[in-house]
Design a protein around this nucleic acid. Structure first.
Length: 867
RNA sequence: GCGGGCGUGGCGGAAUGGUAGACGCGCUGGAUUUAGGUUCCAGUGAUGAAAGUCGUGGGGGUUCAAGUCCCUUCGCCCGCACCA
């Protein structure tokens, strides 16, 4: 055997797998799955075709491929597809910068990325590849939208957007930098536009409740989704305005603190604010200032809390003589509750900050148990804990929950309010004022109003002859595209020029993969019934809320419209961590890419080009701005896909951020070569009747079968780094056995018992290594003389008899501190374990003559002597 | 601001409440080969001559026993509805 040539070998097996169509999925379990354990749909989040794959992709697809390969070997009928989330802003930015058409740019990127992905050696069924920018894909979602519309799941209303007043364009949140447009630099304004919404709120409670059933999802993702949905119970109540016929309706989760109210605050977008501003220029200016921020919640919430006293007085619902000032405040969101709140400074931090700023009274009405209500003072911190109500008339003495109930029943009796449930979740705005997205199939007719495009006229395709030089949406200034005849009256009408949010495409692509070539319908019932739900979905934690929630909603909406019969699309979910890298800076502050650096012998870092001494900075998420990305293609070229895959899996638990290092991938590369040499050495063994090693065989087999057992368990638990460790433990054990053999003329004589154990262990080792290092393992499998592909071989079974040994090592503690270990027969009785432990000289010494007060014996584990 | 997460040797990390540091990187010493990314062997938490003592971000608690459970505190990271 020559040196391992990964370049040739990896290309060779990728070609063979492809020629033999090894990973094609059909609903009929094939001969490989004669003893099929059912189907396994393994899916990684499909990539945006940015042009080149990045390390995050490699991590994602390596993990998914490992699962897919293991499941295949375990006898499951596996579906493991790939496609392209091909609509989105970057294509338009590229069009603007480089004068390339988004369609051409996207298709070129897809071609390049497909080649790169294939170089990783993934078990993808490429016959099912889809791209969401193709009319064959998006025509189905246009039909879905029309069905949502007729089923009351889509509607139109006004909503805010970021508006760049210089470019006259709508900006995405990421295009707003410090409150200004990224290209124009002009302060961004909020504007109202008429937009389409999907009624995700109709499923709010269902989406929340069903989280409980998703027991193969990470708890943190379920928690984040539950918080996002944000179910809260509270009260709606009305405050009459003094001297006016109007009321202000308020939502609160703390009706128990009504007697601690000191002001009312309404949103700058509240209708009352608009009305008052008409006769109040100062207020109008305040509201205009509030609109000088973006629409992002993070910006609004972190902005300085400001208010404007309208001069109006609201009358307390429980006391007609009590009047509260009414403010317009920038932190009150029109989208949540009623767009108006009452402020109780003593028991809400935000209200307290506001009250201190504007000199409003602070009255504590909940005091901790055992505290005197008259001496309890709120300083800089609001009291939000439990306690007894005080200074609250009929609520006095009640606890918080009791107070809430009593306050609500009182409000209901007075006809001033009622108990209610509110969700933080808002309906999903799907309109985008952009070109590179799926056209919304709607026609606006001056006579007939909003008219859906008839289904038989779908798809509404994007025109290709568009101009990106003018700001704004190219669809709206296209000379002809939007001008159409109204489908109802035949008169002159205009197409909707907005396109869908790209989350639309990713909300159902997993179903499309089930029958990607259907033309008249998005998928067949048989195919989705067979494959869905996805058994294992894998992707970045950054999608933990939005994408996953939208897909869950979409699945329900499609079921309501008769497309599916399913509530939850993803049975198992795994969220991976990011890939990070150290950062480097030149003396002038410029960021330097890892590809341009070299480490000196003294441990310093220099830039190769000019020898400039660099400083190593923090380890951060790989990003273009910090220039700390590493190109997977270059690394695969240098070390091979197997080494890259192995390093991706080996060091860090997959849910955590991992640091990419050159040393790490080199270590993985060395291990690839070590396995190659191990098989080389193994081939020198020669079975002889008088050969040595019979006494070593059983222990080696134990290690091998333990490796099967522990690695399988690690994979099921997604502890992929531990799974790699198990393979290394096994190869180390085999290597130790071989190294211990005497070499004669290049041969290693060995007795038949150990020879057989070595052969069995090597067989197991290669099967276990296959999902991680598929090319090397496939090559070694062939070298060992097998005809069948390793990719079609079953997973090994652990022999239970080899998983347990006769003796166990037991720790003996004195007062909880380890003093000795002893070997005992497995499952020996507690009494003899105690006797043996107390007889041990080290224990006698540690007890220093004191009597044992208590002895705790945990069978097969520990004896703790308390003195 | 709100929500979620993470913190263990020089480094990545392992550990059903039961022997802290598996596996690897790095480092130290040695051997082999002068190799055209070497390989192999031994050692490697701190401290101590040793016995031992200490040690899982900090502080407190529960327990025979805590990295693991509870309270509290500090630091870092991610998401926040038009990036995908």
């Amino acid at each position: 055997m020559a040196r391992y040539n990964f370049r040739e070998t990896e290309a060779k097996w990728q070609k063979i797998w492809e020629e033999r169509d090894s990973f094609r999925a059909t609903e009929e379990p094939g001969p490989l799955n004669a003893e099929s354990r059912g189907k396994a749909y393994v899916l990684e989040m499909f990539p945006y075709p940015s042009g080149r794959i990045h390390m995050g992709h490699v991590k994602n697809y390596t993990m998914g491929d490992l699962i897919a390969r293991v499941r295949r070997a375990q006898g499951y009928n596996v579906l493991h597809p790939m496609g392209w989330d091909a609509f989105g802003l970057p294509a338009e930015n590229a069009a603007f910068q480089n004068k390339v058409h988004p369609a051409i740019w996207t298709r070129q990127n897809i071609d390049g990325m497909r080649t790169q992905l294939k170089s990783i050696g993934l078990t993808i069924d490429w016959s099912r590849e889809i791209a969401t920018c193709e009319p064959e894909y998006y025509k189905h979602e246009q039909a879905m939208f029309l069905d949502f519309l007729s089923n009351g799941l889509a509607y139109r209303r006004e909503s805010w957007v970021n508006w760049d007043p210089v470019e006259n364009t709508v900006l995405a949140n990421e295009q707003v930098i410090d409150g200004c447009g990224w290209r124009s630099g002009a302060p961004v304004e909020r504007r109202k536009l008429s937009q389409w919404f999907l009624k995700i709120t109709e499923f709010a409670d269902e989406l929340l409740e069903a989280l409980k059933t998703l027991d193969r999802w990470p708890d943190k993702v379920r928690t984040m989704q539950a918080n996002w949905i944000g179910k809260s119970s509270g009260a709606r109540l009305t405050f009459p305005l003094a001297g006016r016929s109007q009321d202000v309706e308020v939502y609160t989760t703390r009706p128990d603190t009504l007697f601690g109210a000191s002001f009312l605050a309404i949103s700058p977008d509240h209708p009352l604010a608009a009305e008052l501003s008409a006769g109040n220029p100062a207020l109008a200016e305040f509201i205009a200032e509030c609109r000088q921020t973006g629409t992002s919640e993070a910006v609004i919430e972190t902005a300085e809390k400001r208010g404007f006293d309208t001069g109006l007085k609201a009358i307390h619902p429980f006391d007609p003589n009590w009047q509260l000032p009414v403010y317009v405040a920038n932190f009150v969101l029109m989208e949540y509750g009623t767009g108006a709140i009452f402020g109780c400074p003593a028991h809400d931090q935000r209200d307290l900050d506001f009250a201190r700023k504007y000199g409003l009274p602070v009255t504590a009405v909940v005091v901790p148990a055992g505290t005197d209500a008259n001496s309890f003072v709120v300083g800089d911190e609001a009291y939000t804990g439990p306690g007894a109500l005080a200074h609250s008339k009929f609520l006095d003495g009640l606890d918080v929950e009791g107070g809430k109930r009593r306050a609500i029943s009182e409000l209901e009796a007075l006809g001033r309010g009622y108990g209610t449930t509110v969700y933080r979740l808002r309906d999903w705005g799907v309109s985008r004022q952009r070109y590179w997205g799926c056209p919304i199939p709607i026609i606006h007719c001056p006579t007939c109003g909003i008219v859906p495009v008839p289904k038989d006229q779908l798809p509404v395709t994007l025109p290709l002859d568009v101009d990106f030089d003018k700001p704004g949406n190219p669809l709206s200034h296209h000379p002809t595209w939007k001008h159409v005849a109204c489908p109802i009256c035949g008169g002159k009408a205009e197409r909707e020029t907005d396109t869908f949010d790209t989350f639309f495409e990713s909300s159902w692509y997993f179903a499309r993969f089930c029958s990607p070539h259907e033309t008249d319908r998005p998928f067949t019932r048989e195919a989705v019934q067979y494959w869905l739900p996805v058994d294992q979905y894998i992707g970045g934690v950054e999608h933990a809320v939005l994408h996953l929630l939208y897909a869950r909603f979409f699945t329900r909406a499609l079921s309501k419209c008769g497309y599916l019969d399913l509530a939850e699309p993803f049975d198992g979910m795994f969220t991976q961590g990011m890939v990070t890298h150290e950062t480097y800076r030149a003396p002038d502050g410029e960021w330097v890419s890892p590809a341009e650096i070299q480490r000196t012998e003294g441990g310093g870092i220099i830039r190769v080009a000019d020898g400039a001494v660099l400083t190593a900075g923090r380890i951060e998420k790989m990003s273009k701005s910090k220039r700390n990305t590493v190109d997977p293609a270059a690394i695969i070229d240098g070390y091979g896909a197997d080494a890259v895959r192995l390093f991706m899996l080996s060091d860090t638990p997959p849910e955590r951020d991992m640091e990419w290092t050159e040393a790490g991938v080199e270590g993985a590369w060395r291990y690839v070569n070590r396995l190659w040499r191990l098989i080389e050495d193994y081939q020198t063994i020669e079975s002889r009747q008088d050969g040595p090693g019979a006494d070593k065989a059983l222990e080696l087999r134990r290690v091998a079968h333990r490796a099967i057992d522990r690695m399988s368990a690690s994979i099921d638990a997604f502890a992929l780094n531990s799974a790699v460790a198990e393979v290394r433990i096994l190869s180390n054990a085999i290597g130790d056995q071989i190294a211990a053999l005497h070499v004669e003329d290049g041969r290693r004589p060995v007795g038949p018992v150990l020879a057989e154990a070595l052969t069995e262990s090597i067989d197991i080792l290669i099967r276990l290594a296959g999902p991680m290092m598929p090319h090397l393992a496939e090559e070694l499998w062939q070298v060992l003389g097998h005809d069948r592909l390793l990719a079609q071989e079953p997973w090994p079974n652990a022999d239970p008899a080899l998983l347990i040994s006769n003796t166990v090592t037991i720790a003996i503690q004195v007062n909880g501190k380890l003093k000795a270990t002893i070997d005992l027969l497995r499952d020996c009785d507690a009494a003899s374990a105690e006797t043996t432990a107390l007889a041990d000289s080290r224990i006698v010494a540690a007890m220093a003559g004191k009597p044992a007060r208590k002895v705790i014996v945990v069978p097969n584990r520990i004896v703790n002597v308390v003195v």
